[in-house]
Each structure stands twice: as C-alpha cells, then as structure tokens.
Design a binder for these strands. Structure first.
Lengths: 204, 204
DNA sequence: GTCTATACAGCGATAGAC
DNA sequence: GTCTATCGCTGTATAGAC
C-alpha cells in the first residue's frame, strides 16, 4: 500500500505482471500458478504466500487493471475536453493493449465469467459498468455541445461502443496487427460525428 | 455420416450437444470430459471411444457449429434478397444463441485461441473468414442497389460488424436478457441504412 | 459401445524447515 | 519471504473385460 510505482517492483507486483499477461493471452482458465512460478523462477508455494488462492490473485488482477485503466482515462480527459477526441483517446488505450498482443484483461474474464469466483464476477461487472458510465458521460457532453450526434440514450450507445471495442479486440488479436482494430474503431466513432455519411476522415 | 438429424440422436451427437453447451457457457478450458460424462451418465472412457482426444472433440464442435450456422444463413438468404433484411437475419441467428444464455461457440474459442490445438485454431479462423466473406457479399450487393450506404471496403465493414456482434454477445450475456444485444445490433445496422441520421427505426 | 480400473501429469493448496 | 515436500483432487488418456 505504501508503494505506487517504486524503482524495483516488489514480488507481488512481478507476480501480477506475469499473471496479467498470461490471462490476457491464454485466459483465466488457461494459466496456472506453475506457469507464473516458472517464469519468475520461484516456487508455487512462494506465490501462495503473496496470493493465497488463484481467485484472490484474480481479484487483484482485475482491481489493478481497472485502477490503471481509469487513471489512464483521467489523463485522456485532461488532454482534451472535446468529446470525439476523448472517445478517440479511450479507444487508443485499448489499441495500446492490443499492440502488446494482448486482449483486454476484463474481456478475457468476461468470457470465463461463469467459472469465476463471485468476488471476481463482481469486479468484472463493476469494470464494465464503469466503462459504460464514462462513455455515457462523454456521449452526453458531446451531444449537448453538438460535437456528437446519435439517437437514443447515451447509455445504449455506450454499451454498443464498449461491446464493439471488446469484440474488435478479440478478433483483431488473431491477425497480429492492430490495423483491423483501428479501422473498426474509426468507422464506429465516425458514425457518431455530425456530417456523417460522406468520407469519414476525422481525428488525427 | 449417414444420419443428418435422425429421430433419436446417436451417442456422438449427444456428446456434442452437451460439450457444445459447456463450451458456450464456460469456455473450452472451463469444461472437462468428466462434466460431459456425468451429464450423460456415461464414463469418461466411453467418451474417448467417440472422440479420442479433447482436441478432436473440439474440432468436431467447431465443424458442426460452423456447418449448422451457414445452413441457417442459407435459409436467411432464401427468405429475402434484401441486403438490410439479410443483415437483420444474420444478427437474428446470434440473438437466438444468446436467448439460450450461450455465447457464440467460436467467439468463446477465439478467447481461448492461444491454448487450442493447431487444427482447432485453423477451424476457428475459417469460421471467422467465412462470416466476413458472407457479410462482405451482402454489403457489396446492398451498396450496389443502394439499400446500404457506407464508406470503404465491404471487407472492412464486415470485420467491424462481426467483431461488434461477438463483443455485444459477450457483454450481453452478463445481463441475462438479449435486449441489450438487440439494441446494439439495431443501432449498428441502422448506421448502414440510407437516410441514417434521424430516428433509427427500421426493419420489423 | 460401454464398462472398470488405472496410469500419469497437472492442478491448487498446505505444512514446516530455513 | 522462499524453499522442499507432499497432499488430495482433477485432468486427459489408455488397457482390457464384457
């Protein structure tokens, strides 16, 4: 609790780093304590000292991922008050994940949802709700000032965007490059711009 | 091979039925031969008689799912030559899956992609390509006759639609009802209609 | 075609020494 | 905080009787 991002990462952090990548690549049910231990040249027992159970490790993974993600989102908000640019920045965070050949951690967890512990399930649901809420806020704001145009409730559009983004990540990962993802996202966001229906070049 | 849909399903079919549902709900790494055997009141050994390995069972699952899906798609094509209605029918197939509280089988397999056998990976990739190709065809046709309007290549739009659909399924499954999925799909398809940018009520 | 029985590796998890 | 050692269980898979 006393260290946010120290010079040398502590053991718990290194465990989380490895486990996070494994979940993002192989899924929650596709990795084991042994995988993490081997990579860190530790024993499984040592891992259990830091995270008593796999479910606790899973909770910590979602918590940290969510925290970092919304910190990065706050930075996006600081960079620009423009709603379309904020959406672009939002998508950019996911593009960055994909560039690392990873799927969104919580997107993976959603796929494995039925096999997760109740606390993990709750954490995943919270992450999704928070995403929707953030998107809803940006959408409302953009519509209010006329930089975004859409029918229906901001919440519905937010759900659509979030789902489309997760799905685009899932699929784009198979092709090894992010261009497919970026193309889909650009198309999606362009449909929210005024003057849509023509050539859809927009944000930088 | 001699029976397509007989009166009493054979053992292999019953195994596939149970395993299919388990994959769609829990993921490929979230179920075991024991789960299937218990449900069918058989032994694991009996399962191995029909499907020598889990990977072979997995291949058979993807093959059958893909076959059935594109048969259903052919039926959609027979019902209407109208591109927007065909897209609506396409999405309806996935809505039906969701109504059963299941995720798309191949969507689940995509999440577990890195842990699949090479033949399973190939089968999943083929399913996605076939989806894209079908969508591309409908999109081209619709654009040619003016019932659909979009920028860029049909292939890019097809990828976007497919990804968005899979993502919407993944997320909608958590909420227990299909209304969120249908809302997202309707919004997505509406953006391809001429006259978009107004109230987006369309197909029945 | 299904069974019993079993092999054998891997899993998450614990005990106790250091 | 990490180790060795091990437990109990589940995983996929096989041998051989019926």
């Amino acid at each position: 609790m006393a260290n946010a991002e120290p010079g040398q990462p502590g053991t718990a952090t290194r465990i989380l780093d490895v486990a996070e990548r494994l979940v993002q690549v192989r899924g929650y049910n596709g990795f084991s304590y042994a995988d993490v231990a081997d990579e860190l040249k530790m024993t499984k027992a040592a891992l259990h000292y830091h995270f008593a159970s796999k479910a606790e490790l899973g909770e910590a993974l979602i918590e940290r991922y969510s925290l970092r993600f919304f910190e990065a989102l706050a930075a996006v908000e600081e960079r620009t008050p423009d709603a379309p640019l904020r959406l672009h920045g939002y998508a950019g965070l996911y593009a960055q994940v994909l560039r690392d050949h990873r799927m969104c951690l919580c997107g993976m967890m959603v796929a494995d949802y039925e096999t997760l512990s109740p606390p993990m399930q709750d954490a995943v649901v919270r992450y999704i709700q928070d995403n929707r809420q953030w998107l809803s806020g940006v959408l409302s704001q953009g519509r209010d000032v006329g930089t975004l145009v859409f029918d229906g409730s901001p919440g519905d559009v937010a759900s659509m965007i979030f789902g489309a983004l997760e799905g685009a990540m899932l699929i784009a990962r198979l092709q090894g490059d992010v261009s497919g993802f970026e193309s889909s996202v650009e198309r999606l966001l362009a449909s929210l711009l005024p003057l849509a229906r023509s050539s859809a070049r927009s944000a930088s």
